[in-house]
Protein backbone atom coordinates (compact mmCIF):
# COMPACT_ATOMS: atom_id res chain seq x y z
CA UNK A 1 0.00 0.00 0.00
CA UNK A 2 1.41 3.44 -0.92
CA UNK A 3 2.27 5.66 2.00
CA UNK A 4 -0.58 8.08 1.35
CA UNK A 5 -3.19 5.36 1.96
CA UNK A 6 -1.69 4.14 5.22
CA UNK A 7 -3.11 6.97 7.28
CA UNK A 8 -6.69 6.86 8.51
CA UNK A 9 -7.13 10.63 8.11
CA UNK A 10 -5.98 10.40 4.50
CA UNK A 11 -8.36 7.55 3.70
CA UNK A 12 -11.22 9.61 5.10
CA UNK A 13 -10.07 12.74 3.27
CA UNK A 14 -9.89 10.85 -0.02
CA UNK A 15 -13.38 9.39 0.38
CA UNK A 16 -14.76 12.81 1.28
CA UNK A 17 -12.86 14.29 -1.65
CA UNK A 18 -14.40 11.81 -4.10
CA UNK A 19 -17.88 12.73 -2.88
CA UNK A 20 -17.16 16.46 -3.06
CA UNK A 21 -15.51 16.13 -6.43
CA UNK A 22 -18.62 14.45 -7.81
CA UNK A 23 -21.21 16.79 -6.26
CA UNK A 24 -19.70 20.19 -6.80
CA UNK A 25 -19.50 20.14 -10.62
CA UNK A 26 -22.96 18.57 -11.02
CA UNK A 27 -24.47 21.44 -9.07
CA UNK A 28 -22.13 23.83 -10.85
CA UNK A 29 -23.33 23.00 -14.37
CA UNK A 30 -26.89 24.05 -13.50
CA UNK A 31 -25.71 27.21 -11.73
CA UNK A 32 -23.37 28.34 -14.48
CA UNK A 33 -25.93 27.82 -17.23
CA UNK A 34 -28.53 29.77 -15.27
CA UNK A 35 -26.04 32.56 -14.59
CA UNK A 36 -26.26 31.95 -10.85
CA UNK A 37 -22.61 31.09 -10.23
CA UNK A 38 -22.38 33.72 -7.51
CA UNK A 39 -24.90 31.84 -5.36
CA UNK A 40 -22.26 29.29 -4.36
CA UNK A 41 -19.84 31.96 -3.21
CA UNK A 42 -22.60 33.79 -1.36
CA UNK A 43 -23.73 30.70 0.51
CA UNK A 44 -20.10 29.88 1.36
CA UNK A 45 -19.69 33.25 3.04
CA UNK A 46 -22.91 32.71 4.96
CA UNK A 47 -21.66 29.25 5.94
CA UNK A 48 -18.58 30.92 7.39
CA UNK A 49 -20.84 32.89 9.73
CA UNK A 50 -22.37 29.56 10.78
CA UNK A 51 -18.93 28.06 11.37
CA UNK A 52 -17.87 31.07 13.44
CA UNK A 53 -21.06 30.83 15.50
CA UNK A 54 -20.45 27.11 16.00
CA UNK A 55 -16.87 27.67 17.14
CA UNK A 56 -17.93 30.48 19.46
CA UNK A 57 -20.70 28.41 21.04
CA UNK A 58 -18.50 25.32 21.10
CA UNK A 59 -21.02 23.28 19.14
CA UNK A 60 -20.42 21.34 15.93
CA UNK A 61 -19.42 24.07 13.41
CA UNK A 62 -20.63 22.02 10.42
CA UNK A 63 -24.16 22.04 11.86
CA UNK A 64 -23.95 25.81 12.27
CA UNK A 65 -22.75 26.18 8.69
CA UNK A 66 -25.53 23.96 7.36
CA UNK A 67 -28.24 25.83 9.25
CA UNK A 68 -26.94 29.25 8.18
CA UNK A 69 -26.46 28.42 4.52
CA UNK A 70 -29.78 26.58 4.10
CA UNK A 71 -31.65 29.48 5.74
CA UNK A 72 -29.82 31.93 3.50
CA UNK A 73 -30.66 29.78 0.45
CA UNK A 74 -34.36 30.01 1.26
CA UNK A 75 -34.06 33.75 1.84
CA UNK A 76 -32.20 34.36 -1.42
CA UNK A 77 -34.72 32.37 -3.43
CA UNK A 78 -37.65 34.22 -1.85
CA UNK A 79 -36.05 37.56 -2.59
CA UNK A 80 -35.26 36.51 -6.15
CA UNK A 81 -38.79 35.26 -6.88
CA UNK A 82 -40.43 38.34 -5.36
CA UNK A 83 -38.51 40.41 -7.90
CA UNK A 84 -37.95 43.18 -5.37
CA UNK A 85 -34.22 43.08 -5.98
CA UNK A 86 -32.23 42.18 -9.08
CA UNK A 87 -30.97 38.62 -8.78
CA UNK A 88 -27.38 39.64 -8.25
CA UNK A 89 -28.20 42.39 -5.77
CA UNK A 90 -29.95 39.86 -3.53
CA UNK A 91 -26.78 37.78 -3.61
CA UNK A 92 -24.58 40.76 -2.74
CA UNK A 93 -26.75 41.47 0.30
CA UNK A 94 -26.37 37.92 1.62
CA UNK A 95 -22.70 37.63 0.71
CA UNK A 96 -21.60 40.78 2.50
CA UNK A 97 -24.08 40.22 5.31
CA UNK A 98 -22.83 36.69 5.95
CA UNK A 99 -19.22 37.74 5.87
CA UNK A 100 -19.89 40.71 8.19
CA UNK A 101 -21.56 38.46 10.76
CA UNK A 102 -18.67 36.03 10.49
CA UNK A 103 -16.06 38.75 11.03
CA UNK A 104 -17.91 40.13 14.05
CA UNK A 105 -18.26 36.66 15.62
CA UNK A 106 -14.57 35.97 14.99
CA UNK A 107 -13.56 39.22 16.68
CA UNK A 108 -15.79 38.38 19.65
CA UNK A 109 -13.96 35.05 19.90
CA UNK A 110 -10.67 36.93 19.92
CA UNK A 111 -9.51 36.30 16.42
CA UNK A 112 -8.42 33.44 14.25
CA UNK A 113 -7.39 30.07 15.51
CA UNK A 114 -6.25 26.90 13.83
CA UNK A 115 -9.78 25.49 13.56
CA UNK A 116 -11.08 28.50 11.71
CA UNK A 117 -8.10 28.45 9.39
CA UNK A 118 -8.89 24.87 8.42
CA UNK A 119 -12.46 25.85 7.57
CA UNK A 120 -11.37 28.85 5.54
CA UNK A 121 -8.70 27.21 3.42
CA UNK A 122 -9.48 23.50 3.64
CA UNK A 123 -7.29 20.76 4.98
CA UNK A 124 -6.82 17.04 4.47
CA UNK A 125 -6.09 16.30 8.11
CA UNK A 126 -9.35 17.50 9.61
CA UNK A 127 -11.92 14.97 8.39
CA UNK A 128 -12.88 13.05 11.52
CA UNK A 129 -14.88 9.79 11.20
CA UNK A 130 -18.01 11.72 12.23
CA UNK A 131 -17.32 14.35 9.55
CA UNK A 132 -16.95 11.66 6.92
CA UNK A 133 -20.37 10.21 7.72
CA UNK A 134 -21.96 13.67 7.57
CA UNK A 135 -20.26 14.41 4.24
CA UNK A 136 -21.30 11.08 2.71
CA UNK A 137 -24.88 11.30 3.99
CA UNK A 138 -25.44 14.89 2.85
CA UNK A 139 -23.69 14.12 -0.43
CA UNK A 140 -25.99 11.20 -1.13
CA UNK A 141 -29.01 13.41 -0.45
CA UNK A 142 -27.80 15.95 -3.03
CA UNK A 143 -26.89 13.27 -5.57
CA UNK A 144 -30.26 11.60 -5.06
CA UNK A 145 -32.19 14.83 -5.54
CA UNK A 146 -30.23 15.70 -8.69
CA UNK A 147 -30.81 12.22 -10.07
CA UNK A 148 -34.51 12.14 -9.28
CA UNK A 149 -35.24 15.60 -10.72
CA UNK A 150 -32.66 15.56 -13.52
CA UNK A 151 -35.10 15.94 -16.38
CA UNK A 152 -37.01 18.75 -14.65
CA UNK A 153 -33.79 20.60 -13.83
CA UNK A 154 -32.67 20.27 -17.44
CA UNK A 155 -36.01 21.60 -18.73
CA UNK A 156 -35.91 24.57 -16.34
CA UNK A 157 -32.29 25.34 -17.12
CA UNK A 158 -32.86 25.25 -20.86
CA UNK A 159 -36.12 27.22 -20.88
CA UNK A 160 -37.77 28.12 -17.59
CA UNK A 161 -40.95 29.46 -19.18
CA UNK A 162 -41.30 26.42 -21.42
CA UNK A 163 -40.96 24.18 -18.37
CA UNK A 164 -43.68 26.15 -16.61
CA UNK A 165 -46.06 25.68 -19.55
CA UNK A 166 -45.46 21.93 -19.27
CA UNK A 167 -46.68 22.07 -15.68
CA UNK A 168 -43.24 21.56 -14.10
CA UNK A 169 -43.25 23.00 -10.53
CA UNK A 170 -40.55 25.52 -11.40
CA UNK A 171 -40.58 27.60 -8.21
CA UNK A 172 -40.35 24.59 -5.91
CA UNK A 173 -37.49 23.10 -7.93
CA UNK A 174 -35.61 26.41 -8.02
CA UNK A 175 -35.84 26.52 -4.24
CA UNK A 176 -34.67 22.92 -4.03
CA UNK A 177 -31.67 23.64 -6.26
CA UNK A 178 -30.62 26.62 -4.14
CA UNK A 179 -30.90 24.55 -0.96
CA UNK A 180 -28.83 21.81 -2.63
CA UNK A 181 -26.16 24.41 -3.36
CA UNK A 182 -26.16 25.33 0.33
CA UNK A 183 -25.71 21.69 1.32
CA UNK A 184 -22.97 21.17 -1.29
CA UNK A 185 -21.05 24.19 -0.02
CA UNK A 186 -21.11 22.76 3.51
CA UNK A 187 -20.08 19.31 2.29
CA UNK A 188 -17.17 20.77 0.32
CA UNK A 189 -15.85 23.26 2.86
CA UNK A 190 -13.87 20.82 5.04
CA UNK A 191 -11.54 19.76 2.24
CA UNK A 192 -11.64 22.65 -0.21
CA UNK A 193 -12.15 25.45 2.28
CA UNK A 194 -14.98 27.95 2.45
CA UNK A 195 -13.24 30.55 0.33
CA UNK A 196 -12.53 28.18 -2.57
CA UNK A 197 -15.64 26.01 -2.56
CA UNK A 198 -17.37 28.01 -5.25
CA UNK A 199 -14.33 27.58 -7.49
CA UNK A 200 -14.72 23.80 -7.41
CA UNK A 201 -18.41 24.26 -8.21
CA UNK A 202 -17.82 26.61 -11.12
CA UNK A 203 -14.44 25.87 -12.74
CA UNK A 204 -14.94 22.20 -13.80
CA UNK A 205 -18.34 23.17 -15.23
CA UNK A 206 -16.98 25.89 -17.47
CA UNK A 207 -14.16 23.53 -18.48
CA UNK A 208 -16.75 20.98 -19.62
CA UNK A 209 -18.73 23.65 -21.48
CA UNK A 210 -15.70 24.18 -23.71
CA UNK A 211 -15.56 20.54 -24.76
CA UNK A 212 -18.94 18.86 -24.57
CA UNK A 213 -21.33 18.05 -27.42
CA UNK A 214 -24.39 17.37 -25.30
CA UNK A 215 -25.69 18.16 -21.83
CA UNK A 216 -24.98 14.66 -20.53
CA UNK A 217 -21.44 15.01 -21.82
CA UNK A 218 -21.09 18.34 -19.97
CA UNK A 219 -21.97 16.55 -16.74
CA UNK A 220 -19.57 13.67 -17.39
CA UNK A 221 -16.63 15.88 -18.36
CA UNK A 222 -17.24 18.26 -15.45
CA UNK A 223 -17.21 15.40 -12.94
CA UNK A 224 -14.10 13.90 -14.52
CA UNK A 225 -12.22 17.23 -14.39
CA UNK A 226 -13.31 17.82 -10.83
CA UNK A 227 -12.26 14.37 -9.63
CA UNK A 228 -8.85 14.74 -11.28
CA UNK A 229 -8.44 18.15 -9.63
CA UNK A 230 -9.48 16.86 -6.21
CA UNK A 231 -7.21 13.82 -6.32
CA UNK A 232 -4.19 15.66 -7.72
CA UNK A 233 -4.74 18.50 -5.26
CA UNK A 234 -5.02 16.22 -2.24
CA UNK A 235 -2.01 14.15 -3.17
CA UNK A 236 0.00 17.35 -3.68
CA UNK A 237 -1.25 18.62 -0.35
CA UNK A 238 -0.10 15.41 1.35
CA UNK A 239 3.40 15.26 -0.16
CA UNK A 240 4.25 18.97 -0.34
CA UNK A 241 2.34 20.12 2.75
CA UNK A 242 0.40 22.81 0.87
CA UNK A 243 -3.22 23.92 1.37
CA UNK A 244 -5.55 21.31 -0.14
CA UNK A 245 -8.16 23.79 -1.38
CA UNK A 246 -5.58 25.87 -3.20
CA UNK A 247 -3.95 22.86 -4.81
CA UNK A 248 -7.33 21.49 -5.93
CA UNK A 249 -8.50 24.76 -7.46
CA UNK A 250 -5.16 25.41 -9.17
CA UNK A 251 -5.38 21.96 -10.77
CA UNK A 252 -8.95 22.67 -11.87
CA UNK A 253 -7.84 25.97 -13.38
CA UNK A 254 -4.97 24.25 -15.19
CA UNK A 255 -7.49 21.83 -16.73
CA UNK A 256 -9.66 24.79 -17.71
CA UNK A 257 -6.67 26.40 -19.44
CA UNK A 258 -5.95 23.18 -21.27
CA UNK A 259 -9.57 22.84 -22.36
CA UNK A 260 -9.58 26.41 -23.63
CA UNK A 261 -6.64 25.65 -25.90
CA UNK A 262 -8.01 22.29 -27.08
CA UNK A 263 -11.63 23.41 -27.22
CA UNK A 264 -10.87 26.26 -29.58
CA UNK A 265 -10.75 23.67 -32.35
CA UNK A 266 -14.37 22.73 -32.91
CA UNK A 267 -16.41 22.99 -29.73
CA UNK A 268 -18.53 26.03 -28.95
CA UNK A 269 -16.83 28.85 -27.04
Amino acid sequence: MPEILQYGFMQRALLAGLMIGTLAPLIGVFLVLRRLSLIADTLAHVALAGVAAGLLLRTYPVAGALAASVLAAVGIERLRVSGRLFGEAALAVFLSGGFAVAVVLISVANGFNVDLFAYLFGAITVVQPGDLWVILALGLVVLGALGIFYKELFAITFDEEGARVQGVPVDALNLMLTVLVAVTVVVAMRIVGILLTSALIVVPSITALRLARSFQEVLRIAVACSLVAVLVGMVASFYFNIAAGGAIVLTALALFGLASVVGRRGAPG
Binding site: L33, D159, E161, G162, A212, R213, F215, E217, P268, G269
Partner: peptide, 9 residues
Protein backbone atom coordinates in the same frame (compact mmCIF):
# COMPACT_ATOMS: atom_id res chain seq x y z
CA UNK B 1 -36.11 31.22 -25.14
CA UNK B 2 -32.70 30.55 -26.37
CA UNK B 3 -29.12 30.86 -25.28
CA UNK B 4 -27.14 29.99 -28.42
CA UNK B 5 -24.25 28.45 -26.49
CA UNK B 6 -26.42 26.16 -24.41
CA UNK B 7 -24.68 22.79 -24.47
CA UNK B 8 -27.56 20.52 -25.40
CA UNK B 9 -27.98 18.16 -28.32
Amino acid sequence: AFEARFPAS
